[in-house]
Design a protein around this nucleic acid. Structure first.
Lengths: 104, 104
DNA sequence: GCACGATATAGGGTTCTTGTGATATACTAG
DNA sequence: CTAGTATATCACAAGAACCCTATATCGTGC
């Protein structure tokens, strides 16, 4: 009887976690996360747009997606909005990509 | 000058890696990977279908997606096809989900 | 050859994602 | 209030993902 009672991760957990990973796994969003990873603290949207070399509207939408997933959080200071990572677990992904440039 | 020369992961790397992670980040495909993670060796399609509690055709399609991404590999033995993980880096994802049941 | 179990593929409707251009909102300075 | 910068949202068309049913292929045994 080698295999009958393997304890697998519960399907409900996978259903909860999959969209978070899936939403992070986009080139521009990984770039945002990597940029925040390499930064000392929160960064405002203009900083992020520059790091992404992409359009403002598009970056703003990606920030919203990451925020809606609970991956990022933000606070407004004057006319600037500063973003930072809300759930540091996502850094495992970034670090994994950094360490081996082809992992998953 | 606090931030001008941060070394970010190259965009071409992110573009290469994103679809791999994205393709793994699906509940059923995570289940497949978790099942293979917890198994001692390769498993055939029937085993995997049972572990997934899903339809044979659908699971077969997911296996193909994972194989096309280079995440899985397979070999035929008689009328059975045995799948196993081709790139163990993907186990980092699974282990991360296992260790903290809400990471990314 | 035939029948059967194991696996893969095709077809297709529905829904989600992507990236863009235009526009709206928020805040500051004057 | 006005102008200007910073940020968010809307609308949309092209494409991709999802998941199902039906069917095809491959291998074995007779």
């Amino acid at each position: 009887m080698p295999e009958t009672d393997i304890a697998l991760i519960d399907m409900s957990v996978l259903e909860q976690v999959a969209p978070i990973i899936r939403n992070a796994a986009h080139p521009l969003r990984l770039r945002i996360l990597d940029f925040l990873r390499q930064s000392d603290g929160p960064r405002n949207v203009t900083n992020i747009v520059e790091a992404c070399e992409s359009g403002q509207a598009f970056v703003s939408q990606q920030l919203r997606i990451l925020k809606d997933q609970g991956i990022l959080e933000c606070r407004r200071t004057g006319s600037f909005v500063y973003y930072q990572v809300a759930n540091p677990a996502i850094f495992h992904l970034i670090d994994c990509i950094r360490s081996q440039q082809r992992c998953g």
